[in-house]
């Protein structure tokens, strides 16, 4: 399975990473190199094997549904690229 330039641009769009036409070929070749390397996994028979997401068996802990965080809005917004009146600013999405 080998990626085309169209595949690369689709993946880049999904990942929200701009790739210039100049970088596209090199990126495609490197991704294909990595995919060729991981291709050896396909040769292994894994019938009946359960996937392992976590090496140590953990179950999601529950906690009482109470407020534990303090309001630190100012601290968090101090490091944001753009805020106004306590809100994060982004480009307009609805005209």
């Amino acid at each position: 399975m080998s990626l085309s330039l169209d595949d690369v641009s689709r993946i880049a769009r999904l990942a929200r990473i701009e790739i210039s036409p100049a970088e596209a070929t090199h990126t495609r070749d490197q991704l294909n190199g990595i995919l060729a390397f991981v291709e050896q996994l396909q040769a292994v028979d894994t019938t009946g094997i359960e996937p392992l997401a976590h090496a140590v068996d953990v179950v999601q802990r529950l906690r009482p549904d109470t407020v534990t965080e303090t309001d630190r809005r100012d601290d968090f917004q101090a490091i944001a690229p753009e805020t106004e009146a306590g809100l994060y600013l982004v480009p307009r999405v609805i005209e």
Partner: peptide
């Protein structure tokens, strides 16, 4: 590169072939 590979192996149609397969091998 790693974000792009990760996005690809999790994307529709490839998830089982890559991600689930790798998790089985992890076991």
């Amino acid at each position: 590169r790693r974000i792009l590979i990760g996005t690809y192996v999790l994307s529709h149609g490839y998830y089982d072939a890559y991600y689930l397969k790798a998790q089985k091998i992890r076991r």
